[in-house]
């Protein structure tokens, strides 16, 4: 069995990456946070045009490679949610493939539907007023208490597992970007006459972040191939922790500049911390995995 991506999968990943690089995902995330969703929606439409949104339900590996790049460039928008609905509800696939934005929540694991204000549909229906959100590009909407007439009953488990898997892939990319920024900074920033990256303690933090992300990646792609809930749980728990570890290392190694909102690490840190908990945090998924293995 070959574990590496095929030439076509790499080509597609590169196409997604070029689009996001040219469109500047971080700038779109900043604009989105400030209330201007236009650049972010343009990226959304561009990715739909090259076929990212048509992969749901049929090409999970390709979709995970795309989600990793979406994470890497911090592109805003409810990608895991829309694509999870497409995977779970085949009748929605053509519209989502064409660029429709939908969102979802599966209480009690993931009780808030992100970006419900810009979504054409929300599964199930959500309140119209957002609650406080750590990631300003990911506004959160509580599911309506009194069940509203819903678009259609949605298979909650499949939505949960798909959204958790895609969020795990997104976290891999986000964590990698935070680490890349930090490695570049550690080579540049001089203290006591040497680049801080030359100090062993700094190297260790970077190496730990790197191995965490690299060890999480096979779990994500194994879950994409098997679609087993227990594999998804292993992937989401590992990716959440690896990305968060990378983000914390990034924050500390950057020193004071890492704490400023103007520096792009802030965009990544907030996104990683909020996705760490979204669609089930590590505790939920570890618990589910252990139950499945018969250990609990």
């Amino acid at each position: 069995m070959r574990f590496a991506l095929t030439e076509e999968q790499r080509d597609f990943r590169d196409a997604v990456d070029s689009l996001l690089r040219d469109a500047n995902g971080v700038a779109a995330a900043r604009a989105w946070a400030a209330g201007d969703t236009k650049p972010g929606l343009e990226i959304w439409r561009g990715l739909a045009a090259i076929g990212v949104h048509s992969l749901a339900g049929e090409y999970p590996v390709e979709l995970c490679t795309a989600m990793e790049r979406i994470g890497y460039h911090a592109a805003p928008g409810p990608y895991p949610e829309s694509l999870a609905v497409a995977a779970a509800l085949p009748e929605w696939r053509p519209r989502i493939a064409a660029g429709a934005i939908v969102t979802a929540a599966v209480p009690p694991v993931s009780p808030y539907a992100p970006n419900a204000d810009i979504a054409e549909a929300c599964f199930p229906a959500a309140d119209s007023q957002p609650v406080a959100s750590l990631d300003p590009t990911r506004s959160l909407f509580r599911i309506a208490e009194r069940p509203q007439p819903e678009p259609a009953p949605a298979p909650a488990e499949l939505i949960l597992d798909t959204a958790a898997l895609l969020t795990a892939a997104q976290l891999l990319g986000l964590g990698r970007a935070a680490l890349d920024m930090t490695v570049a900074y550690a080579k540049q920033r001089v203290q006591y006459g040497r680049a801080i990256g030359e100090y062993q303690a700094v190297k260790h933090r970077l190496a730990d972040a790197h191995t965490g992300l690299e060890f999480a990646r096979p779990l994500v792609f194994a879950a994409a191939l098997s679609a087993e809930p227990r594999d998804v749980s292993a992937a989401k728990a590992a990716a959440s922790e690896a990305a968060y570890r990378a983000a914390r290392a990034a924050l500390q190694l950057h020193g004071a500049i890492g704490y400023t909102d103007e520096y792009d690490l802030s965009v990544y840190f907030k996104k990683i911390r909020s996705l760490h908990a979204a669609w089930g945090g590590p505790a939920f998924h570890r618990d589910r995995l252990l139950r499945d293995l018969g250990e609990l």
Binding site: E8, F12, A15, G46, I50, E62
Partner: peptide, 12 residues
């Protein structure tokens, strides 16, 4: 334009 998924698969 960016190569699309369909385009990449068809190129083969």
């Amino acid at each position: 334009r960016y190569p699309s998924f369909k385009g990449i698969m068809a190129a083969k």
